[in-house]
Amino acid sequence: MKPIILQGHERSLTQIVFNAEGDLLFTASKDKIVNAWYTSNGERLGTYNGHNGSVWTVACDSQTRYLLTGAADSTMKLWEVSTGKCLKTWEFLTAVTRVAWSEDDEMALCITEQRTGQPSVIRTFAINLADPAASSSTPLKEIILSGSKATCALWAPLSEHILTGHESGKIAKYDAKTGEEVNAVHESHRANITDIQLSPDGTYFITSSKDKTARIFDSDTLEEMKVFATETPLNSACITPLRPYIILGGGQDAMNVTTTSSRAGKFESRFWHKLFEEEVGRVKGHFGPINTLACHPQGRAYASGAEDGFVRVHWFDESYFRSRPFGDLEPEVEV
């Protein structure tokens, strides 16, 4: 499995996402730009210039028409994918740390950072798909979080609820219309939730945390289904369609990296069996902690973005699809 290395950022990666077809990859970085790449050969399609601070988050709609980004300059921007034009900007008082599209692309959500005097807020917006520039600047709903701040969020299937991960390790579910907390799990993760990603069919989601574990939860009941315990703080986790695996990434905190060799840093992507909770393999390559992982929507590839400023796109070999590490046992395949 020879990786395609994308060298286009000058600073560490913050979030990467595939589009729905998996032919494009969007990468957000602290160097204030967002890049779009062809996944098949690693050629750069274009750059989205305009943010004036570290871009923390990026999200692509299901038709690959519009791109949402959030940055440390306290704005959320909506871009046209094909032209790189910024169509609309929402301005807030604090940095935007996470954006997400709803299932039908008609709504978006964003999380703004907590700061002295400013609570962490989740806002939802209606997006006018015909003319995004005409979308309303007033949020549909503002959910002001009183407890631990939210670090990541996504829309539950059907877009009636929002699933969030918090700094305290809390996983919560909010009603998107009323803004009420419907359900919450406090006891699962013990530390900061770093990433949250939905399964292909939306019935469950995976969370990664600094407590060195990743967990799978039922997106309806928030019941904890699986636990994957590793020996390193985790920054990201994703679920592979086609094969029953999950991919975990992380490593020593960036501030400690210089004191440890790249061996000790544990900067590998780890493949775990989703059902048996056992590690099946690792992919090396980065020389900094992996900050973000994304899997090809059809399960043909995965990409990792790291503190070292590189994105590595790995197309799976035939052997990946053929291998049966646990014998003939094979759970039902999800696409």
């Binding site: 069919d201 939306g202 019935t203 469950y204 309806d220 759970p331 039902e332 999800e334």
Partner: peptide, 13 residues
């Protein structure tokens, strides 16, 4: 267990 749980959830969804 996993398959049963998923079938249930998928149907509900």
């Amino acid at each position: 267990e996993w398959d049963a749980w998923r079938a249930r959830n998928n149907a509900r969804l």
